[in-house]
Design a protein around this nucleic acid. Structure first.
Lengths: 246, 246
DNA sequence: CGGGGTATTGACCCAAGTCAATATCTGTGG
DNA sequence: CCACAGATATTGACTTGGGTCAATACCCCG
């Protein structure tokens, strides 16, 4: 099923070149980074880091999806971040993982050992600048998510998540989302539940309710058709449409 | 009631000098910042910024408390950040407020016009570095909050908030929290509810339940006694004690 | 002493959780 | 190609934590 992943060597051919931490690098900076980078691949479901354990590596996601989770011993789990290609794993200046990091799909990382990366960082204002920008974007996303978790109903949460996935699946290069409104869910019901602060049963029930109300159509378990994106947005509980135009 | 706030001029005497964005500045950098800074004071309850409206100023909180909130038209409101002295308001590179910002107490800000601040930023790696650090800290806090909002019970949320306030009221200079376990709540029940994703009624009920269970004692409406901090922590639902030692 | 904001408490309700049965999908080996 | 097993998902019946609505209580301040 999985297409053999081509081994990358040249940053210039890297699919996340213009969105990752290295987005603004000058050729000379890119060279320096390139010299200490190494690629690593994980299978779907594999654990990449565990909260509290040492993590001597930082990385950019090149291909695939990963999740950041926080959980309590009794099993309650909350997804606190969804990592897509170009997102960054790890925090400069910290040698312990703050979250559990798990590969959702097969995953390719562009890794750096923390120490040398931090040393290079000193001399690379463009990386720090981009890192700040990315951190602030993630902060905004986390805060939007706080509104969802604190105040939205189950139906609104599901609609919000679907809307988010649609928006993201368009962005990368503009074309993936061929048939208008067909979305491939990259995550299981359980992951959705952990993202939304719900149970899988509630996720399932709300999806069927949205289907019965004609907002979405289910094609198999993992594909969703959205005939009218505006109608979906109207269910999210958000006042604005997030600046999207259709 | 409020003691007349002394007008500050010298950064060297600033109470947040070593924690704010300017924490790592060299004297020369501090000078440059100092030249464009100006102070501004708000009364408790005043609006500082409104989501979606232009905000041509960034600022550090010098004194007082402010909140960041997100809300939906129907009135549902979620607090997404609690801003204490040394915290930063505004985002370089963005001219529109992303959140509603409100003064909770009387508030003093150390302000900069956005444009000149951004221009200075180019030449001040120490400010950018600190800004990144602060953004990452806030991101961690936001994600911890996501776990609380998504997965904790009302009782655990209240306990977590009280524990947080205790921890924060110690940090600044080590001594404020005189009588062991006496905490002055800086916020109303409504603010607590908006922080915790609950209603004021539930907040009230859980506080009385915690009182009846001997975890806390209420002294008036705004002062809480915590005879056994460990017992409170045990109610938060967190596995670890956040690294605090008593 | 009275009035407006703030907080508590009670009675009732409902959205979402829990528990449990069943269905569907995916991959594996015969 | 089928049968089977283990994930994953749906659906139903029932319970419950927290919301809603409403009545007091408290508290500061003029």
């Amino acid at each position: 099923m999985a297409i053999a992943s081509p081994v990358l060597h040249e940053c210039s051919e890297c699919p996340i070149r213009h969105r990752a931490v290295c987005a603004r690098c000058e050729p000379v900076e890119l060279d320096a980074l390139s010299r200490i980078k190494f690629y690593k691949t994980y299978a779907a479901g594999q654990t990449i880091a565990i909260r509290g354990e040492p993590l001597e590596t930082v990385a950019s996601i090149v291909r695939g999806t990963a999740t950041l989770t926080r959980s309590i011993e009794d099993g309650r789990t909350q997804l606190v971040g969804l990592l897509l290609p170009s997102d960054f794993i790890g925090r400069p200046g910290r040698s312990e993982a703050q979250y559990d990091v798990t590969a959702v799909t097969e995953l390719t990382l562009c890794c750096f050992h923390r120490k040398p990366f931090e040393e290079l960082l000193e001399a690379m204002p463009h990386v720090r600048e981009r890192l700040l920008e990315m951190a602030l974007d993630e902060l905004d996303a986390a805060r939007d998510w706080m509104l969802l978790l604190g105040r939205k109903t189950a139906r609104e949460r599901i609609a919000s998540l679907l809307a988010l996935i649609v928006k993201r699946s368009i962005r990368p290069d503009g074309g993936i989302m061929g048939d208008k409104g067909r979305v491939e869910l990259p995550i299981t019901r359980e992951t959705m539940a952990n993202y939304l602060g719900l149970t899988i049963e509630t996720v399932s029930r709300q999806l069927t309710r949205l289907r019965k109300d004609g907002i979405i159509q289910l094609e198999g378990k993992r594909t969703i058709l959205i005939p009218d994106f505006g109608a979906l947005l109207a269910e999210t509980g958000d006042d604005d449409d997030g600046g999207m135009i259709f």
